[in-house]
């Protein structure tokens, strides 16, 4: 009867509801991202105040950069180590807490608590504890293990950075897994037991498939997150020893902010964005293959 049908009003409400988020994305994500793309085509000398169009030169440099290759390798190790350790530990903790035991609430609280400690404080504390005469080696000493100089060895530094990050954040994934585990119907286990399936079989054949949507979600968040880990590296290792822990985001920071190569830094930013976007897309595409009952 009028112009404002229910459908039209609905459309308007829809646009109004998404407007704040959309305008925000435009102003604070897309336009800045476009500007980064533009910087990557320029040589920008910050101190001298010159800004010069150089076309694809930065991208050629990207292809020839050996340090970038080292950094990509370090990034891959870091991301792989982090995701595997984080998800395994999160699942292990969730399974343990899902047992019928008194006091699991207490343990749940304790495992979750590092999530709430501010990142800088957490890293600062670990930096001191990982010194050769720090608490970590004192504790290992109690177990008769002679700990290494954690932050000075190439592989031990990488392990340290991963472990510190996992302990900080594994609580989040643990809680998500715990909720998923509690959603698995008990009769399924009973039936499997009657069929003679052992604990391990029940876990791999029932639990894992049923919680696969959660595994997908946590692995996406964890992988994307692992490519953004910056402050921890900056405080703990500064990318060393050698360049063993110089992950891509840290290399980008070095080039842009420390070496003043803003144009080249922007080029690495573009690469990082492409990698993150590709990884997310692949995982999202793969979900149909290995996630049960995706709607």
């Amino acid at each position: 009867m009028t112009f404002w049908t229910y459908r039209r009003r609905d459309n308007l409400v829809g646009y109004l509801f998404v407007a704040p988020a959309l305008l925000g994305s435009l102003a604070f994500v897309l336009i800045p991202l476009g500007m980064v793309g533009w910087y990557s085509l320029n040589e920008w000398n910050v101190l001298g105040g010159t800004f010069e169009f150089i076309g694809g030169e930065n991208y050629q440099r990207l292809l020839a950069d050996e340090k970038l290759r080292d950094s990509l390798v370090a990034t891959a190790w870091f991301a792989a180590g982090l995701v595997v350790l984080n998800l395994t530990l999160a699942l292990l903790l969730a399974v343990l807490l899902n047992q019928k035991l008194r006091g699991t609430t207490l343990f749940r609280t304790l495992f979750f608590s590092p999530v709430l400690v501010s990142l800088v404080a957490w890293t600062l504390v670990w930096q001191l504890m990982l010194q050769p005469e720090g608490s970590v080696n004192d504790l290992l000493g109690l177990a008769g293990v002679d700990g290494p100089n954690w932050l000075r060895g190439e592989s031990s530094a990488m392990v340290s950075v991963i472990v510190v990050q996992v302990i900080k954040n594994v609580g989040l994934n643990m809680v998500l897994f715990l909720a998923a585990l509690q959603g698995v119907p008990a009769p399924l286990y009973e039936a499997a037991k009657i069929d003679g399936a052992g604990a391990w079989t029940r876990f791999t054949r029932i639990t894992i498939p049923l919680i696969s949507p959660t595994i997908l979600l946590t692995s996406i968040i964890t992988i994307v997150g692992s490519l953004q880990v910056f402050a921890q590296i900056a405080v703990l290792t500064q990318g060393g020893p050698g360049t063993s822990t110089t992950v891509l985001i840290y290399y980008l920071y070095q080039q842009a902010f420390q070496f003043h190569h803003f144009g080249y830094g922007a080029t690495i930013s573009v690469l990082l964005f492409v990698i993150v976007a590709a990884l997310t897309l692949v995982q999202w595409r793969m979900r149909r293959k290995w996630v049960l009952h995706e709607s």
Partner: peptide, 18 residues
């Protein structure tokens, strides 16, 4: 000139010495 890049490069290259 370019001290910070030199700093980081030398720091990394000297690490095996320690």
């Amino acid at each position: 000139q370019g001290q910070e890049e030199l700093n980081q490069t030398i720091r990394a290259a000297l690490d095996p010495l320690w």
